[in-house]
Structure formats: structure tokens, C-alpha cells
Design a protein around this nucleic acid. Sequence first.
RNA 1: GGUUCCGUCGUCUAGUGGUCUAGGACGUCUGGUUCUCAUCCAGAAAAUCGCGGGUUCGACUCCCGCCGGAAUCACCA
Length: 484
Amino acid sequence: MKIITRFAPSPTGYIHIGNVRSAIYPYLAAKQSDGKFILRIEDTDQARYVEGATDLIMDTLKWLGLEWDEGPEIGGPHAPYFQTQRKDLYLDWAKKLIEKGRAYADPTDSDTIQGYRDADNAKKIPYLYRNHRPETTPDWQPGMPIRFKADPKPRNWHDEVMGDLHAGPEVQDDIILIKKDGLPTYNFAHIVDDFLMGINMVARGVEYLSSTPNYLALYEAFGIDQPLLVSLPHILAPTGNKKLGKRDGAKSVTEYRKDGVLPEAMLNYLACLGWNDGTEQEIYTKDELIKKFSLDRIQNSGARYDEVKLLWMNGQWIRKLVDEQGIDTFYPRTAGFWPDSAANFSDDYKKQVLAIIYDRLKTLSDLREMTGYFFADPTFDTEQLLANKFLKKLSERELVDLLNVSIEALEKIADWNSDSIKEVLNDLLVKTNRKPAELFSLIRLSISFAPFSPALDLTLNVLGKNVVLSRLNRVKEALSLDNQ
RNA sequence: GGUUCCGUCGUCUAGUGGUCUAGGACGUCUGGUUCUCAUCCAGAAAAUCGCGGGUUCGACUCCCGCCGGAAUCACCA
């Protein structure tokens, strides 16, 4: 069966990692079956509408690679894809229900309704509006809400994730279909739109589980087939047992882009948070996810968000992409992540730096902290050098002598490359009778003054002979001055 | 409170009655990779399978009860 499904966000803000799975899973299901993934904007709540939110949402989907087949910007046979632009449609459908005797215009004012609620609460009986349904209802006119006339009875249904479910009549009520402002409620609009758009699979968070019996009643009243229902468990905040939300500091999905997270890693992590294919595979490309995804293997309990694992996965993806595609292909992705001091250096040079450092990146923004000494002279902090756990055993005289022989040997290299450098370094170890920990730490610190760097021969090679010799000389002079 | 859902290492999970003295991954710890940091490799610690009954020759897996957690009860989605 071709899955025709949709992602139907409400433009009330950005998409954060807690709710993006309800876009990912439908997308995967649709693509797997060669079906359709539709984007529909549910903007019927005027009060919570946020300007620009739709753009933010579309931006997130595009970044993750979740391209929609129908929706805003690209249109489609079921346009428009904004619910406010479909307003008249819902009213027509609500009127159909009134004609069938399955809905009614409700003249009751909100104070009276609140009175019903308070009274029932005082009597400790469940508040259901259908117990207070007006005996006679007027013809509908603008400004009046329209309510569904519930048909409460036990209902059984199947959920692709949760399995066979059941609910009693006590959760079915006369829900509002059309609000006083003339716009439909979510409860009603999505039923109409899903039907008109040919949607046969609906995925949404588990919070909709308890409303499902009302939706079932609506399908029944219209005589339309119910779509496949998919309830997605929540993603839990790092602490506590609540679902991850903006209050927990849930970052927007695209905020991770600024932090140097790759969309491949984000998609991979999120897809596998609460889903697996039963194998021990951890790293999946989008195509692999599409191929291997299955609704019935979605976990039915909430999964805790773990940023540490996301960052691990991002490191895996950086290595995978560089190893598979090469530095040249990957390099453009690093734009904007280099330190300011790198601005005037050539792409070629930065590629060389990337080539020796990429395998220790967790995020692209690590480049900023890890590559400074490739682009500007470090602060020559001889105290730091003397405090090094290997170098503090040597006198300053010995350090200066070591630097002298090193400079002398490196200067003689005619063809500066990592092999020739390595050879010279090895010769130096023999000649000076020093441990690698001593000689290499001295050179490494002298040229970088960084807590870590790539392998010494590779680092020296990329820095170039002139820079290396000048930095070694500078350290030597600083130490010699100290000596006097 | 009513209704509903969920419950395996710290975390994400594998597991559909015997192959489970419970497997993998992240994280943690140890060792190796000529210096550092990381990668990579090897190894370790880590789950009385929420608890209690039952069915069975045998239960993480089936049944019942309980406990714990969550969701929902809007003219929000």
C-alpha cells in the first residue's frame, strides 16, 4: 500500500527535537512505499500564531532532508495547504453534519458552560458536555460554535505502534467543530483535510490517544474510512519523566546546525531514538532508513534524549563522510566554522588542516577551538611549556640544546613532507637519546602551545618549514633569555 | 478523581516459552596505537528483566493482581 501521509505542524514556534519525530517517521513510511509526504500548516489558532514560524518549520524540514511532495511553496492538487485558507470548507462539512442530525449550533454562552463544569466537579461526576446538550438548538449563524453530537459507545481500534486499543463511552463528548471565530478546531479540521487530501496514515504524539475515540466517531458520522493510526511516544527530557519541551531548553533542530551538527547525524539519531530494525546497526543513511523502517518496530514507551550520544554519532558521520567522499567534497560544509584568524588562508591550506584533524571532531564547531595555531602564532607561554609533565624533568639548558639540534636537523630537510619529517624526527630520537615523550612534547608544544594536536609529522608538514622553524627559534630565544 | 498508555544495564535498545549464566550501542573505567587530544583496537564494571502470585517440565517472554511513571479530561494543537 502506498502511504499517503502528512506532517501537520501548528505555526506556534520552531520545531524542536522533542517533536520532529512526528515528521521523520511519516516521511520514512511514505518514501518507503513510494507514497506521498504532505506538509500542511494548521494555523487555526489565531492566539498562538507566531509570525515566521512556518518558515522556521520549512527550514528545519529542508535541512533534515525531509522534502515534502505537496504543501507550501510547491503547491499540489489539494491546495491550499494552510488551514486558514480552507476556512469555508470546514463550515460546509460541519453543515453536512448538522443536516444529518450529527451536529448542532450551540447557543450556550461560556459562563453557563463553566457553570456546568463546576457543578459536575462539585458532584464529583465526570464533566461531559453532552449531559448538558441543549434541548432545542437554533439555526447556525456566524459567531456561534458548532458542536458534534456524540454517539458514545465502546470503541476498539488498532494503532500501528500501540497495538489493539479500547476506550469506553465516557471519553466521547460533544466536541467543538467550528469555533466562535468561524475557524475549525484541530479535532475537526484534520479529519476533513486528511480525507480530502487522501491521507491514509496519521502519525502524531501519544497525547492524541485519548481523543482518538472522538475522531473515530467523526469518521463514522461522515462514513469515511479511518486511516492507519500511529501514536508516537514522547521524547523525554534528560532529567525527570516529562516529555522534552521548550521549557527544558529543548533546542530547535536547526540550532544544532549552528553548533556544527550534520543533518545526517541528526536524522540518524532521532530516527533511532525509539526505533531500530532489530539488528545491531547504529549508523544509517537516509536511504537505509527509508529501506529498513517499519512502523511496528517503533518503541511504545518514551525515550530519553541523550545529547552525548548525538554528538558521538555526529563524530561518526563526519568521519564516514570524509572517508567515503573525500576532503574536497566535505570541505564546503565547514564554511563558517573556522576561527576568525583563518579568514585569509586559502581553501587548499584549510583542506590540509581539515584532513589531519577531522577524525577528532565531534562537531564542526570544534574546528574553532582546535585549529587556531594553524592560522596564527600561538601565545608563547614558556611557563606552560616548563610545567609539562615530561618537560619539567629537563633543565632549561637541556631544552635549549634539544631545540637547537632539532632546528638544525629540520632546517636541512630539502623536500618538506610528512615522510621526510618523520625520518628526521626518528633520527633525532636516536641522536639525542631522548624519549619520544620528551622530544616530541617539546616540539609539539613549541609550535602549538595547544593542549592537543594531530600527529607531529603531519602537523609540522601542514604548518610548513618556515613557520615551524620560526616558532622553534622563538621558543629557544625565550628560554635562553630566561636562562641569563 | 475518571479514562488510557507505558515499565530489560545510568541512557537508547535486542529479546515473541528452552540457544539468556540476558546481546549490542552511548557513557564510565583499564590497556594498546613512538608525545598530547581524539580516532581506532582489545578488555572490564554495569540489568535479581518494576513487585507478587499463577499457568508450564521450563517465563524477560503467557494470565491475574499490585506498584510506579506518563498522557488526557479546552471554542490549544
